[in-house]
Design a protein around this nucleic acid. Sequence first.
DNA 1: GGAACTAAATTTAGATTCCAAATAAATACT
DNA 2: AGTATTTATTTGGAATCTAAATTTAGTTCC
Lengths: 400, 400
Amino acid sequence: MTEISVATPQLLRRVSAGAVLDFMRASEAVTVTEVLEATGLTRATAIAVCEDLMQRGWIRELENQRAFGGYQKGRPARRFELNERAGYVLGMDVGVSKATVVVSDLRGKALGRSSQPFAEADIPAEERIAVIDRTAMMALHSVGASPDSVLAVCAGIAAPVDRNGEVLVTQHFWGLFDVGLKAALRDRRGWTVLLENDANLAALGDRWRGAAAGVDDVVVILASERFGSGMIDGGRLLHGRGGGAGELAFLDMVEGVGDTYGIAALARTWAADALAGKVKTSLREFAAEGVEAEQVFAAAADGDAVARAILERLADRMARIIGAVSTIINPELVVIGGAVAKSAGVLLGPIARHLTKYTVTPPRVAVSPLGDSIVTVGAVRCALDYVEKNTLDLELAVPD
Amino acid sequence: MTEISVATPQLLRRVSAGAVLDFMRASEAVTVTEVLEATGLTRATAIAVCEDLMQRGWIRELENQRAFGGYQKGRPARRFELNERAGYVLGMDVGVSKATVVVSDLRGKALGRSSQPFAEADIPAEERIAVIDRTAMMALHSVGASPDSVLAVCAGIAAPVDRNGEVLVTQHFWGLFDVGLKAALRDRRGWTVLLENDANLAALGDRWRGAAAGVDDVVVILASERFGSGMIDGGRLLHGRGGGAGELAFLDMVEGVGDTYGIAALARTWAADALAGKVKTSLREFAAEGVEAEQVFAAAADGDAVARAILERLADRMARIIGAVSTIINPELVVIGGAVAKSAGVLLGPIARHLTKYTVTPPRVAVSPLGDSIVTVGAVRCALDYVEKNTLDLELAVPD
DNA sequence: GGAACTAAATTTAGATTCCAAATAAATACT
DNA sequence: AGTATTTATTTGGAATCTAAATTTAGTTCC
C-alpha cells in the first residue's frame, strides 16, 4: 500500500525482514536466538520481525519446541520455520512436441508433475497455450494446490530470450515459441510468468542441484539433439543483447565441427553411416530400429571397434567445442546436460584427453545427473529466485 | 566507527545520502528543490543530507546562487554541487615497456598524466614498482595533488586478473605482471589499488567515453599488436574463473585465423611478405623502415592493389573473429580499440561485408575514438566506480 | 513442594531518522 | 508598503532500531 520513495523508516523493517527470511530459507526450524546471532539484530527486533512474517504467512511457529535437541536449561525458546507451503511455483519445459510442468514448494521440493504432448508440431498459438494451461492445471490438481496460490511461473523455451524475458523474433523460426504465454497466463490465471531460454535454465538447474552445485563460473551444454548452452559468469546468467548468448552456431567456423547436431543425433547418424558399409560390428543388431547413443556407448565398452571410433570422434568434437567456449569464457567447469548426459559419462575420459590439444588451461568437465528434467529444475529455480527477491512485495492468497 | 549490523536507523541516512550523491554526480549545481524531486525525499531531509555531505567534504555550496538562470521569484534557493576535488583517483596503464598514470578528479576529468619507460623488459619487481610509483608521484605533482588525497587507484595489466583483482600465476609468463603492486602501493602510500586486465579496462573505458557509450552488451577488442578483448554483458564485465574471459586464443581453432597477432602486427608482416616478391606497389617507399598499418590503409585508399589485398585480408580476419565471438556472446556492438583503431575506420565497411558470411545476426561494429588512452580511461572509470560505490565509507584526507 | 538457576521473552527508555504541516524568511512584483 | 512566491526552518508525530532492566517459563536440586 504505502509507496516507498527512498528511505523511510519502513525500509528498515524490509531489510531486517529480508535478512531473517534469507536465514530461514537456509535453515530448518530456528530459535530466535539463532536468528539474532545470524542477523545481528536485537532480540526484541528479531521477535518483532518474526511475528510480522508469521502474520503475513511466510513463516510459521512450531508447537513442541522443546522436542528439538534433548535437554535444555532456561525458558524454552520459540521455534520458527519457513512456511514452505505459503505458495507454490511452477517450472515449465515447453518443447516442440510436449509441455512439462512441475509444481514445487518454496523450498524447491517438487510436489507434482504433469506432461502433455502437442497434437502436432505446427498447431496454432491458442492451442499450444491451451495445452500448456491444461498441463499446469493438472499438475496443480495432482498436489491439491489452487491456482491462486501460485506465486510465480517460469517457462523454458528453445528460443533466445533476452534478460527481460522478451523473445526477439529476429528469426522467423523462433516465432513458433513466442506464443504469448506470458500475457495469456497472466490474463487467465493472474500468474507472473518468466520466460527463459531452455539451455539457460539448464545452467541454473545444474548449478542448483547438479554437477555445478555452487560453482560461480560454469557453462552447461545441452547436448542431446542439438547443442545449446547456458553460460554463468560470477553466478549470473549471460544473455547478450537479444538473449542469443550461449548459441553455439559459431561451431560452423571451428575446424572439425561444422554443424550443431548434438551427441544423440551424431551418434545415430554416424552409426547408420558405418552400418551402410560392410564392417563387422555388434551395432548391427540394432540396425532395424536405428542405433542410439547409449547403445554405441555400451558397444564401445564391450570393445566394439566401430563403436569406439564413434565415441572417440564424439569426444574429439566435444573437446573442440568445450575448448573454444572455455577459452573465451574461462569457466571453472563445463557440464554436459540433457537426456543423453546420464550415459555420457564414458565420454569424460576421452574428452579430457582430447581437450589438452585445444587449450592449455582446460576446465573441469562433468555430466549432469539431472537427465531430462534439467530444464524444469532450472525453471523452478528461476521462479524461486523471483519469489525470493520479491517476497516482501507479494501478497499471499490465503494467509493461514 | 560505528559497526552497522543489519538495519539500524543510520542505514536510512546512508541510503538517502547515496541517492542524493548519485543525483549530484549526474548533474551540475542543483537546488534542494531539484534534489527533492529527484530523490523523493522531503525538503527537511534533503537539506539535512546535503549539510551532512557538505560537512564530510563530498559536496560544496555555491555562493551567488541567483546567478543561475536569470529571473526567479521567491526566496533564493541554495545551490549545491559535487566537490569534484574532494579527492583524486589514479588510472594506470602498466605495459611491458612503460607505465602511464593519469590523475583524474571525481567527475572523471583528466587533470594530469605522466609516462615513464621501464629500463628493460625484464627488470626485477622492485624496480618496476619504483618506476610506477615515481610515475604516479610525478603525475600527482603536476596537478598539485597530495598522495593523501588519492581515493583509489586502478592499474591495467596485460595478464588475466580475476574478479577479486588477483593474478593467478597459472602461466609463468604472467608472473611478470604480478609484481605485488597492490601491496607495495598500499604499504608505501596507503592507496587502495584495484588490478584489472587491460582489455577489460578498455571495455570499461570505451563504454564510458567511447563508441560504446551506454551500450550494455558490448565486446571491445584491443587489436593493435595482439588481440585481447573485454566483454560486457548486461553492463557487467565478464571475468571467468581466473580472469581469463575474453582471451582470444581460441582463434587457433577458427578456420582462416590461426594465431593471435593484432592488426598492426599483421599489416606489418603481410606488407613485408608482399615486398619480398616482385609486385609493384607504392608501399615499397616505406620498405626500409618497415611498413605500418596506417600506411597500408593510406595506400589502399589510393588504389594500391597490394595494400587493398592486405586490407581485405585483415577485414576478413576481423570478421571471422567478430563473427565467432559475437555468435557466442551476442553483443549489440563490437568495438575495435587500441592505438591502431583511429586509422582502422577504413576496415569497417569491408568487415561488415565479410561479416555476413559468418553470422546471420551481425552486431554493429565500430572503432574506438579513444586511441591508446583507452586503457587509462577505463582505469579511471574503474577507480571511480570503486569510489562511487564506497563513498560513504571513505574518509577524506583534508575536509575543507 | 519450594528455592535456585537459566535462558528466553517482554518491557521501558532513548536515539535516529523520516514525513507532514505549520511557520518564518527572502526575494520579486505591483 | 504590501502581496505573491519560493525556499528554509521548526515542530510534532511515527517507525524503527538498540541497550538495559524486568518478567516469564521452564529445569534442577534439596
